[in-house]
């Protein structure tokens, strides 16, 4: 045993076990899971951060935290998209997963106090944003107006429907939802999420705007926000990369000089606006 092991340095790649305590499908591809660490401890995290989730024998992947630290347990939403996520989808309540983290930067939870907040969410971009939205709702008096814009590709893909219905009933927040493709059961807005932005144009310049969605969405949302005179320093984006290690070593998530796993996933847009390959 060498010196650094005798110093009992932690193995940064060693996951701890967590047990699935609840699970349900949110739509055809997205699985919601509530986890409890087997250690009995609560993970200390801040909205915006992610964990590395693994299933021994299949692999490991970075997954955004969807819960808020103001409530117990860890909530994740996992899309069935590859080998690991397919295997996770087959797990029942009581099954175990490996968890490392939390990693990465956070939403500006402190700096945002007293400010008006706008959340622009495209598809599963709602998943990490939900962490901050719920955090704000649990500390409602600390923040100004809260506006949530939700865009989903089609009716059947919509996430957290009951929760969003509850948000819509609240008087202390404004939620607008749109779907890209019209549907018989839908009488709300139809169009991409950017079509909602003009509706809150007056509020935007004085708000902090949190944006998360698929890569293709950012360009259009950021253009609309620029047209609405939102300063780049007031925009926070939450980026997706293939963080293999989560600790700034493996190089996979690097965008120019930035490591998404350390400097991100939440970036202030003004820090990235001139960085090619970012979005």
């Amino acid at each position: 045993m060498c010196e650094c092991c005798t110093q009992e340095k932690k193995d940064i790649y060693l996951p701890e076990l967590a047990t699935i305590t609840k699970r349900r499908m949110l739509n055809g591809t997205e699985l919601y899971m509530h986890l409890q660490l087997d250690s009995g401890l609560e993970m200390e995290y801040t909205p915006g951060q992610f964990v590395e989730v693994s299933l021994a024998g299949i692999g490991e992947a970075p997954i955004s935290i969807s819960s808020t630290p103001t409530q117990k347990g860890l909530e994740l939403v996992i899309r069935n998209v590859g080998t690991l996520t397919r295997a996770i989808h087959k797990l029942d309540v009581g099954a175990k997963l490996g968890i490392r983290g939390p990693y990465g930067s956070t939403y500006p939870v402190e700096q945002a106090k007293g400010k008006d907040l706008v959340f622009v969410c495209g598809g599963i971009g709602l998943v990490p944003q939900r962490s901050f939205i719920r955090y704000v709702l649990d500390n409602r008096a600390d923040y100004g107006k809260v506006t949530v814009l939700l865009g989903t590709k089609c009716y059947d893909m919509r996430l957290f429907r009951e929760e969003i219905a509850m948000w819509m009933e609240r008087k202390d927040m404004c939620v607008m939802e749109t779907i890209d493709e019209a549907h018989d059961c839908w009488d709300g807005n139809v169009g991409v999420v950017t079509t909602l932005i003009p509706k809150i144009e007056n509020e935007l310049p004085n708000s902090l705007v949190m944006v998360c969605g698929p890569p293709v969405m950012y360009k259009f949302v950021l253009m609309s926000l620029a047209e609405a005179d939102v300063p780049q320093g007031n925009i926070f984006v939450n980026l997706e990369r293939r963080m293999k290690c989560g600790v700034g070593k493996c190089g996979h998530c690097q965008i120019n000089q930035h490591y998404v796993c350390q400097d991100g996933p939440v970036f202030r847009y003004s820090d990235l606006a001139d960085v090619p390959e970012a979005i």
Binding site: D11, L14, L17, G57, A95, K96
Partner: peptide
């Protein structure tokens, strides 16, 4: 790490 498939890992 070494592991049991679907189970715990050791450094």
């Amino acid at each position: 790490l070494k592991f049991e498939v679907g189970g715990d890992c050791q450094s």
